[in-house]
Amino acid sequence: MGTEQEQRRKERLDRGIKVRSDGLYALMSWRELSYLTVPRMVLIVGFLILPLIMPSMYWERVISIVCIYALLAISFDFMAHFLGLVSLGGAFFIGVGGYISAVLNHSLGLPPLVSIAVSTIVGALICTLVLLPCLPLRGVYFAIVTLMYPLFLARLIEALNILGGTDGIMGLDSFPGRWIEQYFMILMVLGFLFGMRRLVNTDLGLVLRAVKDNDQAVRASGMSITFYKAIAVFIASAMGCLGGACLVHIYMWAGISLFALDFSILPIAATVIGGSGTLVGPLLGCLILVPISELLRAFGTLRIVFYSLILVGFIVLRSEGLMVYGQRKYHQFERWVRV
C-alpha cells in the first residue's frame, strides 16, 4: 500500500449515520447531511417537474392516476406493514370517497376542492365505522371482508338504482385547471408520504407496530387494540377516500366502476414491486406499474397477460422490492475518507 492510500480508507456511506442512535441524526457535516437528503430531494424535485415534461394531455392525466394509485399503495403498505392488517379495500375506499364527493358536488353544489376535503374526512369515518366489527379479524379474513364490501356496494347501487344506478352521476365539476389538478395530487402524495414516514416513527407509530407484533402485550398495557387499529384504519382509509374523491372530479363522473378490483389489486402489486414497509417503495411501484398498464392498453385483453408476466417476473426475481434493494445498495456505496 502506498503512502497516499494509507491516509485514506474506504468507508460505507451509512457509517457515520448508523452508529448514532435511531431517529436522532446529529449530523457532522454537510456532506453527511447530503447523503440523507439527496435521495429525498431527487424524489421531490423529480415528482414536481414531472407534469412539466409530459408530452401530451393524455400523459398528464396518467400522472394524476399514478398519484391516486400511489395514495392507495401507501395506505396499503401502512396497514399491512405497520398495523398487520392486509387490506384489499382499495376499491372500497375509492368508491366511498368518490361517491360522497360526487353527491356533495352534484346535489349540494360544493366546489370540488371543498367536496374533496369533506369526503376525505366523512368517507374515512364511514369506512372506519363499517370496518370496525372486522378489526379483530386477522390476515386473510380481514382481506376477504374488505374485498366483499365494494362488491356488495356496487351491486346495491345497481339493484336499487340509487346514486345514478348503472349510469352513475354525470356532469361533475372538474378541478379549476389541469395544473391545479396535477400539483394538488402530487402535493397530496408527497405530503402523505412524508407524513406517514414520520408517523410510523413516533410513539404512536411504535404502538401501532406493537399491535401488529404482540397485541396481547398491548392489551396488558392498558390500551385498547381496537382503538389503535381504528385510528390507523381511519388514516389509511382517508388516503383512499381522498384518491376516490379526486378521481371523480378528474373524470367528472362517478359510477360503479369506482368499485373496480383494479383499485384493490394494483396497489398491492405496486407495493410488492416497490418494496413493502418502506412507504416510498409503493409510490415507486405505482410510477412503474401505472404507465406500463397504460402502454399495454393498446394490446386490448392481451394487456393483462403482459401485465401479469411483468408482475410475476418482478416477484420471482426481486422479491424484496426495488426500494429495499436500492436502499441497501445505496448504503453500501463506499467512499474514500481521509484518515
Binding site: 411504535l206 406493537a210 407484533d213
Partner: peptide, 21 residues
C-alpha cells in the same frame, strides 16, 4: 411477550403511551 424487534427501553415506550401511565 416482549416486543422482540425493539430495544428494551423502547419496549416500555408502549405501556408508557397508555392512558394510565
Amino acid at each position: 411477550r416482549p416486543y422482540y424487534s425493539l430495544p428494551a427501553y423502547k419496549n416500555l415506550v408502549i405501556p408508557l403511551f397508555s392512558p394510565r401511565a
